[in-house]
Design a protein around this nucleic acid. Structure first.
Length: 586
RNA sequence: GUGCUCGUAGCCCAGUGGAUAAGGCGUCAGCCUCCGAAGCUGAAGAUCGCUGGUUCGAUUCCAGUCGGGCACACCA
């Protein structure tokens, strides 16, 4: 629809130039937008205002010329199968806006489109099949996932879904930090607990992992191979403990994510980068590119010349590589695997690493635009308005699993995606659990279930979705009103019976879904979908309370069933992008 | 101290250059003999932190300033 308006304006500008009404044929990049206020029309363009300087004319004058050219040709646009005007009125307003008022006939085709496209409505190809990798969560396998990981998981997963829906070839990946000191610390923590279990007197230092899950793992290990382990040399025993524990914790992380509705295409091990020599290869490559130098017995990467505040060490003077070294190798590896674009989702506390990683991307010969970091701000966990005390050091924290168990996957994900990840988020367990208006997930899911109820009721009354639904045995297909549409759209234009303001408003919102998805994909902001779903839900509830879908008048009933089942489909599509289910019953 | 980020109604928050700043909570007043009240309608509530700049136009971009959060290792 926006494109149509744009073409109309472009066309008019052409004609105006040819007729000599406008001195220049330069067309600046105009915007077509849906104005906030209804009395400013359905679409509006700033064409006249941004053209003022090139045309050397006042904006309102340009707007008048464009409008008269459009009006001369208006009949070209006003033909469709509903025999209703598409362009009803054009106005000049304010400083030079050209406002388009569409006739209701312009909107009915969207209902048909939604029914034809179903789960594909909203899809686009703006990604042109580009390969994109979204890496998220990537928590160390040294302890269970907590609420912050949950937000990152919800954001990363939704961004991946939205990009895939927009024509990108998306891979979701989890980077496993299974190398380095924290894994050794994990091994030591388990081993010390194991020693305690066998009755040895040992100190349990502060820098070890304190959580109860360490004891549980030690207990397991004690049962299976406790005595064998205790006679081994300490270093070897710690190594075994580390492997066992990391593996076990990773399995639990996978399980928790699965229960949270997140599935990764790839689990990538940091250790594998060392094993395959890729970390050393990357360092060699950087030496060849002359972006690495030696100082004080360490190797430094010249990140400062790529915009970082200072250079960074990649190999320490004790010969060990830093975490940054494997990160360089990992990101080089990502692009070597053929991704055109790489997106990392990080906790906001890591923002200090963006510059140095950007440096690594550029030094590897990639463009900075190919790499995005999504910084997800922290989550404050509350219960009934009171902060829940959490301390990693003491090992006392609420895990993602506990949250999902308590409030459910849908409520948790929806709340995580309800705000921009740029802002901190208060997550109140009591609110998330309540089935009240405070809890937005029910507000939206309720629409879906309510419509399912209406369609079921209509079906019971024999209003027909059922008779035309041929022989389908599945309930979903039986209640689908696609069949109704195909039965009617060739005959009378029964959708014309949808004339209530609330109905037109609903269709307009439905029609804007593809644009919202596109914006959401371009900005990498899933909460646009959230906001959209809330406004669609609100419009539906308002409509529902004012008008009956099932009426005495059969064609009107069918038209309304088509409308509400369109709403149901779009709600479903939006919720699916966010990883939230759309229940038939609640 | 340096860097990043956020300041919008009593509280939470949307709005990535446009016209009269959108919702929700809370408060007040209403709506179920009727397709699901997990819903709806109405009222009150905002100098968009402050000061400048860029422009036809700034909540939005830039600079400065104040306030909150975070980060500033040869740790991961």
């Amino acid at each position: 629809m926006k494109n149509l308006i744009k073409n109309i304006v472009l066309n008019a500008a052409q004609i105006a130039f040819q007729k000599g009404l406008l001195p220049s044929d330069i067309i600046p990049d105009m915007e077509i937008e849906a104005p906030r206020h209804e009395n400013h029309g359905d679409f509006s363009t700033n064409f006249a205002m941004i053209s003022a300087s090139v045309q050397k004319m006042p904006p309102r004058k340009i707007a008048e010329i464009i409008c008269s050219c459009i009006k001369d040709n208006i009949n070209e646009y006003n033909t469709n199968q509903h025999k209703l005007d598409i362009i009803e009125k054009i106005e000049i307003a304010g400083p030079g806006f050209i406002n388009f008022f569409l006739g209701i006939g312009a909107w009915y085709p969207f209902i048909q489109k939604i029914h034809e496209q179903g789960e594909d409505f909203g899809k686009s190809d703006i990604g042109h099949g580009k390969k994109v990798q979204v890496e998220f969560v990537s928590a160390n396998p040294t302890g269970p996932l907590h609420i912050g990981h949950g937000r990152g998981a919800a954001v990363g997963d939704a961004v991946g879904n939205i990009l895939a829906f927009s024509g990108f070839d998306v891979q979701k990946e989890y980077y496993i930090n299974d190398s380095g000191r924290q894994i050794r610390t994990l091994g030591r923590s388990v081993w010390l607990r194991l020693c305690q279990l066998s009755g040895r007197e040992v100190d349990f230092p502060d820098d070890c992992y304190q959580g109860d899950y360490i004891r549980d793992i030690a207990t397991d290990l004690n049962k299976t191979m406790g005595t064998d382990l205790l006679v081994k040399p300490e270093i070897e025993a710690i190594d075994i403990c580390a492997k066992y524990a990391a593996d076990k914790i990773l399995q639990e992380i996978k399980e928790d994510l699965k229960n949270f509705g997140v599935e990764f295409d790839m689990w990538f091990s940091e250790q594998s980068l060392y094993d395959s020599g890729k970390v050393q290869d990357a360092i060699k490559e950087f030496k060849v590119r002359d972006v690495i130098y030696e100082k004080d017995g360490a190797l430094w990467f010249k990140t400062e010349s790529f915009g970082d505040e200072k250079d960074r060490v990649v190999v320490r003077n004790n010969g060990l590589t830093t975490y940054f070294a494997s990160d360089i190798a990992y990101h080089k590896e990502k692009f070597d695997r053929g991704f055109d674009r790489v997106i990392d989702v990080w906790g906001a506390d890591h923002h200090g690493y963006i510059n140095r990683l950007n440096a690594a991307i550029e030094a590897s010969g990639r463009k900075r635009e190919q790499f995005d970091v999504i910084l997800v701000q922290l989550v404050n966990l509350l219960r009934g308005g009171q902060p829940v005390a959490m301390s990693t050091r003491s090992g006392e924290f609420v895990t993602l699993k506990e949250i999902v168990d308590e409030v459910g996957k849908d409520a948790a994900r929806f709340i995580f995606l309800s705000r921009s990840y740029d802002s901190g988020l208060d997550f109140d367990l009591e609110v998330a659990k309540q089935q009240t208006a405070d809890n937005p997930v029910y507000y939206v899911q309720y629409v879906h279930a309510r419509i399912a109820g209406i369609i079921g009721k209509a079906s019971e009354q024999g209003i027909q979705l059922a008779s035309s639904a041929h022989l389908s045995s599945s309930e979903d297909e039986r209640i689908s009103s696609c069949n109704v549409l195909s039965q009617f759209d060739t005959s009378s234009s029964f959708l014309n019976l949808l004339v209530e303001p609330e109905e037109i408003k609903l269709i307009k919102i439905l029609a804007s879904f593809p644009e919202i998805v596109e914006k959401s994909a371009a900005a990498l902001h899933p909460h646009f979908i959230f906001t959209y779903l809330m406004s669609l839900a609100s419009a539906f509830h308002g409509y529902y309370n004012r008008h009956k879908v099932i009426t005495e008048h059969q064609e009107l009933t069918l038209a309304r069933l088509c409308l509400v089942s369109s709403v149901k489909k779009v709600i479903h599509n939006g919720l699916t992008l966010l990883g939230v289910s759309a229940p038939e019953r609640m």
